[in-house]
Amino acid sequence: MVLDTEEPETERHGNFTVAGVAHRGTDVDEAALWDSIDDYADDLGDAAIGTDRYAVMFDVDADSGEFTYVAGREVEDTDDLSAELTAVEIPQATYAVLEPEYESVEEMVREIHTEELDGDRDEVHAPVFERYDSDRDPTTTADREIYVPVRDDDEY
């Protein structure tokens, strides 16, 4: 198991938008996506809120294993962004905060979408995301925290 789901900490998060470079498929070259974000530095720099970066995984197809992965930044609005960028709404929800040990994004996404988080997972239709402080390298697997939606109610 790549995810430790034994009594995960939970936090209330959401109600923000991440915009960035997207990839759809069953494998992700994270380094290439993060490098390609430099091509949109002006767009994202002007619209970004803060300096944190996000990786967002969503729209998982259980049959094919395909999913969408977006490497980007939190933005206030998407009106002036390049049409080549993808915006993802992160809804307010309660998220389990997990520390994955995985070799690839594909491995992590597969496990998240088959794991039940000790039976505490309700039907929540929110993306899974990772947040990176500006001084952390999002292409390394060390010290990652992943936010997995577990409830969309008002309590923790």
Rank of each mutant, 00 (worst) to 15 (best):
V128E: 02
V18E: 02
E11H: 08
V88T: 05
Y54K: 06
A126P: 08
E74T: 10
V18F: 06
E7N: 15
A55K: 00
F67T: 06
E11N: 08
D46G: 12
T86G: 04
T51M: 11
P100K: 06
Y147S: 15
D143P: 05
V28G: 02
R12N: 12
P8I: 01
N15A: 15
D27L: 09
D43P: 10
I37Y: 01
A22H: 02
D153C: 10
E111N: 10
F129M: 07
P91V: 01
E130A: 13
D120V: 08
F58R: 14
V56P: 09
A87Y: 00
V21D: 03
A83H: 10
N15W: 05
H113Q: 11
Y69M: 00
S134R: 13
G72H: 06
T26K: 10
A71E: 02
V128P: 09
M57V: 09
T78Q: 11
D61N: 15
E115Q: 10
S82K: 01
T139K: 08
I90P: 08
R151Y: 11
F67A: 05
V28R: 01
L85G: 01
V124L: 04
E89M: 08
A142Y: 12
R53T: 13
G20M: 00
M108P: 07
D118P: 07
T140D: 14
T114M: 06
V60A: 07
E84G: 10
L117S: 04
Y147C: 11
M1D: 11
T78K: 08
V2K: 10
D143T: 02
I49G: 10
P149T: 03
V18P: 11
H23R: 07
A71I: 02
T78C: 11
V56C: 06
P127M: 03
D63Q: 12
V97M: 11
T141P: 13
N15V: 05
P138D: 06
G119A: 07
F16I: 05
V60K: 11
A41R: 13
D27R: 15
D39I: 00
E7T: 11
D77Q: 13
E74W: 01
L3E: 06
A96C: 02
Y69S: 07
D79N: 12
G65N: 00
Y102C: 15
V2A: 13
V2C: 15
D4W: 03
H23S: 12
T141R: 14
D143H: 12
L98Y: 00
E9Q: 14
G65A: 00
E89F: 08
T26H: 08
S82R: 07
